[in-house]
Design a binder for these strands. Structure first.
Lengths: 156, 156
DNA sequence: CGTATTACCCAGTAATTCAGTCAACTATTG
DNA sequence: CAATAGTTGACTGAATTACTGGGTAATACG
């Protein structure tokens, strides 16, 4: 489980997609304009998102991308994994050599920790984030500051 | 909140420190040997850990590093932040320009998510990891496979 | 049909980060 | 004083990030 700016770009773009889903397919140049991410970089990211079955593409004028599932069926962990997609063998890759205990234990420990984070992010769907955004926008219109996020990662 | 191999190295090294704390200061070359991390890279990491007040150094023969707090008072988030230590201004750094709503909202959203992850890792102390390790080691000696980690990030 | 629009694909590239090396220095112990 | 061990800084190759540009393929529309 890696967590870099690349993952953030992907989540941001997917969120933009979810928000503008009602007006039909969303073109990458729209996202590029709104989110200030370069078009070609978006192309790279969406190629991976598409290969991982998170989005579908519609070609031609008026085309673009749309979510291939409902926004509550797509979680943050999937998005991050899709764009990273290196299965991080972590120097001792299960099978061999690392049997002198000490190393393998701390290594195994990190894997557990990584699993925990993964599980945590799996509990946060795009839908959660969209809802959160609407709350924020309303409070912005009313001139208040957004309250602290409450049940972002609640159980299903 | 970034999560890369750099952070994992730091956590692993700190864990090693916590485990061998009873035998006095631990030298970097010991950690280097046990955890297979290059000595000079450890020096870089520990310089940051020291500047952030997570470890203390003892010079001279028999010297090395020790935790500057109890292992249950140091959490994983601190360690990761210490070695990353770029406060990631995220292109729109609070104050300015990003007032056209759209951008700032999704940006703010990511910050929230990042906070959530941070809070999660804050709940996991070095002590948790040491305990977990001991459990693992016992089950290893007994030839069983380690059970799934149970209450890794429980409340205090 | 032709053209504009959009996805798709590939090659390259500047900037940054990662992971590690090397060398010189300072403080401490014995 | 000599040996040990931390401290600092400059530097490097490799990988990754973020981005540019050029070209192709599909589709809608006049």
């Amino acid at each position: 489980m890696r967590l870099t700016t690349k993952g953030r770009y992907a989540v941001t773009a997917m969120l933009d997609l979810a928000i503008h889903a009602r007006q039909g397919p969303v073109s990458l140049s729209d996202i590029s304009g709104r989110q200030a991410i370069s078009l070609s970089y978006l192309e790279q990211l969406f190629a991976k998102l598409r290969r991982n079955g998170l989005v579908e593409s519609i070609r031609g004028p008026g085309g673009g991308y749309r979510l291939s599932r409902q926004d509550h069926e797509i979680n943050v962990a999937e998005i991050v994994d899709a764009v990273n997609e290196t299965i991080d063998a972590t120097r001792c890759n299960q099978k061999g050599d690392c049997h002198d205990g000490e190393k393998c234990l701390t290594h195994h420990l990190w894997m557990d920790l990584s699993d925990q984070i993964h599980g945590f992010l799996s509990g946060i769907s795009l839908n959660h984030l969209v809802d959160r955004r609407e709350t924020l926008e309303i409070s912005r219109r009313q001139g208040r500051k957004g309250e602290r996020i409450s049940a972002l990662a609640e159980e299903d």
